[in-house]
Computed example of a mutant assay.
Amino acid sequence: MKKLIMNKIQKVINDGCFFHVDNHERMYICKKGNTGISFSIIDLSGDIQGFEINEQIPCEDIILFQQSSDDRRYVFIYSKMYEYKVKVFSADGKEECAFSLPSGASCNLLDEKQNLWVGLSDEGIYDDENPSGHSVLCFTLDGQLKETHIDQQLSEIYAPAVDDCYALAEKNGLIYMLYYSDTVIAAFDEADVKRVWIISDKEYSGVYDQLAVSDDGFWICKDEHSLSLIPADVSLPKQEVKCYDSEGHELSIQQLRLTMNAIYAISDSGIYKWDFSKREKIK
């Protein structure tokens, strides 16, 4: 087992709130108000800005709220009647676009190019409305589907087919997909599959909901609070990871969020962060 010594960065705790962090290390925290929902966006300097959406949506039904990398739009994804709905707002709060995601959407990622990537579960991959059997889709922020050939290319290089897409991550311009047929990670861009890692160890089997990539390997999160590391040499055993504060006390994790640069944890004592660059603090 490995230990991460994390730094406390926020004291405020909101039990049951929506919490998200993007690759620019902006934190998004949602509270339910009288007329709708309110987001606090906290940047690296500690500055806070607010954004309100006048809809009564429970925090547990919010899938994603994130500012685009060009700072011009906000992307909001939520669940309604077992469907994922997307709304795109301008910086001044005006709704620009609304569309629904396909049946079986299981994970999503808003990348640095303002593309919205959506991974599908087996329900969506084998749905009659998806005759090509796509496992991951790429949308523009006006709801248009972009043409990709990820699954075809996986087949051409004899990589395992995708039966269930678990998680998506971004690193250095590539999209990483963690998927099931055993456990596999594929790296690709809009045009090509670049590399595939096949992890055959049965201990890796299970459903994971987050993925991040660092020099140490692949960080995977299960049920928002259980963290593991697949070493960069994927032939080595998976390592369970526990999070501790600077005084050596194990954190009681409520939520974990993995980004391109760091791991964030909400505990009952605050919000904590561990940077991937601080590899010496893995024990």
Rank of each mutant, 00 (worst) to 15 (best):
G36A: 00
D245K: 09
G93L: 09
S68W: 04
G270K: 05
D61W: 05
C138T: 06
D22M: 09
Q10S: 14
Y158R: 14
D151T: 09
V136I: 15
C221E: 05
L64W: 01
I125C: 04
F51N: 04
V213D: 06
E25A: 12
S205H: 13
D182W: 11
L236F: 05
I57N: 02
R195G: 10
F19I: 00
E52I: 07
S135V: 05
P102T: 08
Y180D: 13
Y84C: 00
I42D: 03
I125A: 06
N130M: 07
F39Q: 02
S121K: 00
S226N: 11
G119Y: 03
L101D: 02
T259E: 01
K171F: 02
Q66I: 07
S155Q: 12
V75N: 00
Q239R: 07
S132N: 15
T35W: 14
D216W: 08
G133A: 00
E247P: 09
A159M: 03
Y82Q: 15
I5P: 01
G46S: 02
Y166F: 12
I282L: 12
T183Y: 01
D192E: 15
Y179H: 01
D151Q: 12
Y28S: 03
Q153F: 04
C97A: 11
R26Y: 11
Q10M: 14
S90D: 10
S226D: 13
Q144I: 10
S214A: 14
M6T: 01
K222F: 01
S269L: 13
D209Q: 01
D71R: 04
E83L: 07
L178G: 10
S135H: 01
K278H: 15
W274K: 10
N14L: 09
K202L: 14
K32W: 07
D216V: 08
G104D: 01
D122M: 13
W197R: 08
K94N: 14
S100P: 10
G133N: 04
P237G: 03
G143T: 04
V86K: 09
Y126W: 04
I57W: 08
I220M: 01
E95Y: 09
K80R: 12
G119V: 02
G46V: 10
D92T: 12
K242R: 13
G143Q: 08
A191T: 15
L64M: 15
S106L: 06
H249P: 07
D92F: 09
H134E: 14
L109E: 04
K278S: 14
F51H: 00
F139T: 08
I9V: 14
G119L: 07
E203V: 10
W197C: 03
N115L: 12
D182Q: 15
F188A: 03
Q239W: 07
